[in-house]
Design a protein around this nucleic acid. Structure first.
Lengths: 131, 131
DNA sequence: ACTGTATATTTCAGTTGTGAATGAAGTGCC
DNA sequence: GGCACTTCATTCACAACTGAAATATACAGT
């Protein structure tokens, strides 16, 4: 149960790192996928790669669109599909947040040697996904 | 999978373990403190020991009260204060959830030796509560 | 006793998540 | 072509959280 405490404290630290940029971890994760893809992505693909429900992405993109960080673009080939695209402002805010997160992650792991980080991840592997 | 991802999946497994009992992890944690104290606790004390904001406890207790698992009792010594108390049903549901969580935790750690569990917790310690 | 000030809870608005139900659009089969 | 079936996104209602503002009570100091 202590694992959960660590989770929330780590998340809070990362969240705090990008708060001055006006982004949350949830918003950053979506923007990060868009930046990585380099092209507009369908909302369903975002939901799947984020391991969350579609309606969650709908609402996140709603807020990102209100922030003018992403735009919805229609897909001419499949009129059901709607793709999300980073705006110019979105790209620069994402870049700033990525730098801040890198720095925060560096500080986070500062208490561990590279060897310890590796064995931490190795020990965690058997915990993920049910038996 | 990264650190955050693994820890979220752990949380989801624990959540799933008590879902059949009709409890969430958030509700269980509050009830666990009440069961541990053995007496009604002020909502402010619950908020502090849960490391969350007071309004969150207000709403959690609202839902627990609607479920008839917890009751609000007035404090005659300080009429600002309201204390939460487990009902009979609350006590038995808490006991059932505690057993289910123990079992889930046992399964969770099944892939690791006792030695590995110890070193996992030891490695996680420096990640909490940043410098 | 009165006037601040601090404390305890609540209320409200907003973020992030889930799951069920809806509507719109593609796909396959007869 | 018409029908069922799936897939896409959205809407709605709710859970769990935060933080700001409101309310009620306690407890000073004067």
């Amino acid at each position: 149960m202590d694992l959960i405490g660590v989770l929330h404290s780590v998340e809070a630290r990362l969240e705090a790192a990008i708060e001055p940029i006006g982004l949350s971890l949830a918003k950053f994760k979506v923007m990060n996928k868009l930046a990585g893809a380099g092209e507009p992505l369908p909302l369903g693909a975002l939901a799947e790669s984020s391991a969350c429900v579609r309606s969650n992405i709908t609402q996140l993109v709603d807020r990102l669109e209100a922030d003018k960080l992403v735009a919805r673009v229609d897909d001419p080939r499949d009129r059901r599909s709607i793709r999300a695209e980073l705006t110019e402002e979105g790209r620069s805010r994402h870049a700033a947040a990525a730098r801040a997160l890198e720095e925060a992650e560096r500080k986070l792991y500062a208490g561990l040697t590279q060897e310890q980080r590796d064995s931490l991840l190795h020990l965690l592997r058997p915990l993920r996904c049910g038996p």
